[in-house]
Amino acid sequence: MTGPIETRLAQLGVTLPDAPAPAANYVPFVQVGDLVFVSGQISNGPGGFITGKLGADMTTEDGAAAARTCAISLLAQLKAACGGEIDRLVRVVKLTGFVNSTPDFTEQPKVINGASDFLVEALGDIGRHSRSAVSAPSLPLGVAVEIEAIFQIK
């Protein structure tokens, strides 16, 4: 049975993928009480990793699209953390976004808006969250964006 969150995602044309496996010695999520801390999810689309450096070979709009893919992976990890019942989500608490960018690039918040805007569009008010958006001189595998999240569940 599909709940309200997956119904809304389907209306947006989004099907959550299987939660990506960790690439190193860490776990994809940790639950502490009613909080789920999801490890950083890297930009990944149907063609593979979305790589590039903002301010060099990617536009802000390209970065925002990459950030959106991170948000979809975050929700996939949350669904796994909830035993497949993503409707246990109470709210998105916080995102921390890392943008692979040149030293003079200053639009990190606009890049991470790709994830924030998607979460609000998909989840409504429970998708509103606190956030950080910072630059990084490089990210794993050359990806454009990595985002970690904290969710509250019931």
Rank of each mutant, 00 (worst) to 15 (best):
E121V: 04
G97F: 02
F105L: 07
D104K: 14
P103K: 05
V99T: 15
I112M: 15
A115Y: 09
R91D: 06
G114S: 08
L95T: 04
V93E: 15
P109N: 03
R91F: 09
K94A: 09
F118S: 03
D117W: 08
F98W: 11
I112Q: 04
R88G: 02
T96I: 14
P103Q: 11
L89W: 06
T102M: 12
R88N: 14
P109L: 05
V93I: 13
K110H: 11
F118G: 04
A115W: 11
T96V: 12
Q108N: 10
R88Y: 10
V120D: 03
A115M: 15
V90R: 06
L95H: 09
S116I: 11
F105R: 05
V93Q: 09
V92F: 00
S101F: 05
S116P: 01
E121W: 04
V99F: 04
P103L: 01
N113G: 00
T102L: 06
L95Q: 02
N100R: 07
E121F: 04
P109G: 11
D117T: 14
V90N: 13
F98L: 07
S116W: 04
V99M: 06
N113T: 15
F105Q: 06
A115D: 07
V111K: 04
T102E: 10
N100F: 08
K94V: 00
T96G: 12
P109Q: 07
L119V: 10
N113I: 01
G114N: 07
G97C: 13
G97D: 00
V93P: 01
V99Q: 01
E121M: 15
V120A: 11
T96Q: 09
N113S: 11
A115C: 12
A115N: 10
V111M: 07
K110S: 13
F105D: 02
L119W: 10
F98R: 14
V92H: 04
G114Q: 09
D117P: 02
Q108F: 06
S116K: 14
D117M: 11
D117I: 11
F98N: 12
D104N: 13
F118P: 00
L89C: 09
T106K: 12
Q108L: 05
L89G: 04
V92G: 01
I112D: 04
R88A: 15
E107T: 15
R88W: 01
L89D: 05
K110N: 15
V92A: 07
F118H: 05
N113K: 15
V93W: 02
E107W: 08
L119D: 04
L119C: 13
L119A: 08
G97I: 05
V92M: 13
R91A: 08
V92C: 13
V93K: 12
V120N: 02
V93L: 00
L95W: 03
F118V: 05
D117Y: 10
K110V: 08
E107Q: 11
A115R: 07
R91E: 14
P109T: 12
V120S: 00
V90C: 00
V90Q: 06
V120G: 02
N100P: 11
V99C: 10
